[in-house]
Amino acid sequence: MTTAPLLTTLDNLAVGASGTVIHLAPSGQGGGLDVSRRLMELGFVPGERIRVLKRASLGGDPVAVKVGHSTFALRRFEAALVSVAPE
């Protein structure tokens, strides 16, 4: 019997936690900047390993994330679009 990995979103990962990007949800911002597309262009693509480095002390927004060899600060709503399988 095979069990599916538990998925969460990047905004729910704890500081220091790692995972693998599984899916990016559509941003749903019609007519505006397509956030999901921008995230993919930055390297948040299925199969890529990520690690949460730090969160802001007030409200946890933004969150610093390492993807590949780059570090990005994402707003909480952006991080919520990225589904990950925690390690």
Rank of each mutant, 00 (worst) to 15 (best):
G60V: 09
S18L: 03
P46E: 01
T9D: 11
R55K: 15
V82T: 06
Q29D: 04
P62N: 10
T2L: 09
D34P: 06
R76S: 13
V35E: 06
N12H: 14
V21S: 05
T20W: 00
G60P: 12
S18P: 00
K54T: 14
A25H: 09
L81H: 01
V84C: 05
G60C: 11
G32M: 09
A14N: 10
M40I: 11
L39D: 04
L42V: 03
G16N: 13
L39R: 07
T2V: 13
A64C: 06
A80F: 02
L6V: 12
R37S: 13
S57M: 10
L81R: 07
L24I: 14
F77R: 12
H23I: 01
V45L: 11
S83F: 13
A80R: 12
P5K: 10
T20V: 13
Q29A: 06
S70L: 08
G32P: 06
T2I: 08
M40W: 03
A80Q: 07
L81Y: 01
P62Q: 09
V63N: 08
A85R: 15
R75A: 12
E78D: 05
G60Q: 08
M1F: 11
P62A: 08
G16Q: 10
M1G: 15
G31K: 13
G59N: 11
V52G: 02
G16F: 02
G47W: 09
G19R: 03
M1L: 07
V15L: 05
G28I: 07
P62D: 07
P26C: 03
I50D: 01
L42G: 02
L58K: 15
K54C: 04
G30R: 14
V67A: 09
T71N: 08
G59D: 08
R76I: 11
A25E: 10
A64K: 14
V65L: 03
G47R: 07
V65E: 06
V45G: 00
G47D: 04
